[in-house]
Amino acid sequence: MKLTWALTEIQIALANSRGIANYWFSFGDSYTSTGFVSDGIQPSPESPLGNPPFPGMTTTGGTNWIDQCTVKYNKSLVLTYNYAYPGATIDNALVNTGAKSMTDQVNEFLGSIGSSQSVPWTGENTLFSFWIGINDIGNTYSEPGSRDAFSDTLLWAYFNLVEKNAGARNFLFINVPPVNRSPMMMSNGAAERAQEAAVIAGYNAKLARRVQWLLGNNTAVKTWLWDSHTAFAAILNDPRAYGFVDNTTFGQPNAFWGDNYHPSSTAHELCAQNIANILNATIW
């Protein structure tokens, strides 16, 4: 079901005049990044993603899911600080792509907004979100050694970062989609694609258990886990039912893939609708 709510100019004006806002601190990779820099123009009611101007610099060439959730599929004013960075992994000490890892992103947040009074965020009015793991697995799934054990290593580092955000109460987690079915990976043999699929499945199962552990060990915490893997698979299994030409075309109208590894803006909108649905009745 497509959601229809949007933040109107009247709502923005009222929220601005009353000082009412919800905050969103986002961490991840190119599936989320909009090119935000923490020392640039800050989010405001007039520009809720701050810098660069909406929709920012995304892999879609247009809006992505966090753009759409911030300005379209929301019921209140949301100011989004999107620290996500293209190519990011959980920690460069574990998988080094040379990009700003999620460890770097979280430390940047903690060293600025997270440790100052410049933004009046509280545990009640703020969402922390994490979409990470795509590059960690993509760069290591075929390496020797136990991939299952390495997923544990990755997730220990992941949740150490989550727990560093003292005062945070609302957490959105997104698992790894079936990037083994992306056009780029479809050029590999079936056995290699199956190998990556198995590592993704193991990682996602462990992530779900970690989210439950976090919830069970922190009574004040609320968690949401959006299953991007199931959502993507449903579309890729029957693309025409969702308005896409097929499951491999990219960079063309009505294509699910914007390029050979990243979803199109139209696909991101379906993600945004799904995510807004599970966040309904929270800070949204």
Rank of each mutant, 00 (worst) to 15 (best):
T122Y: 05
K100F: 09
G87K: 01
S76T: 11
M102D: 13
S115R: 15
S76H: 11
W121A: 05
L127V: 14
Q117R: 09
G98P: 10
T103N: 15
Y81K: 06
E124C: 10
S118G: 09
N74Q: 13
P120C: 08
I132D: 06
S115T: 15
Q105P: 06
N96C: 11
E108L: 02
T103D: 15
N96L: 09
S129M: 09
S129G: 05
L94I: 06
N125M: 07
N107Q: 14
Q68G: 01
K75N: 12
L110D: 08
T89I: 07
G123F: 05
K72C: 01
F130K: 08
G123Y: 05
V71P: 03
F128A: 10
S118K: 15
W121F: 14
Y85W: 14
Y83V: 00
W131V: 06
I113W: 13
A88T: 05
W131I: 06
K75V: 04
N82K: 01
A93E: 14
Y83D: 02
I113C: 06
N125D: 12
E124H: 11
I90W: 02
L94M: 04
N82T: 01
Y81L: 04
G98W: 02
V119L: 13
T126E: 07
V106P: 11
K75H: 14
N96V: 03
W131D: 07
G114K: 06
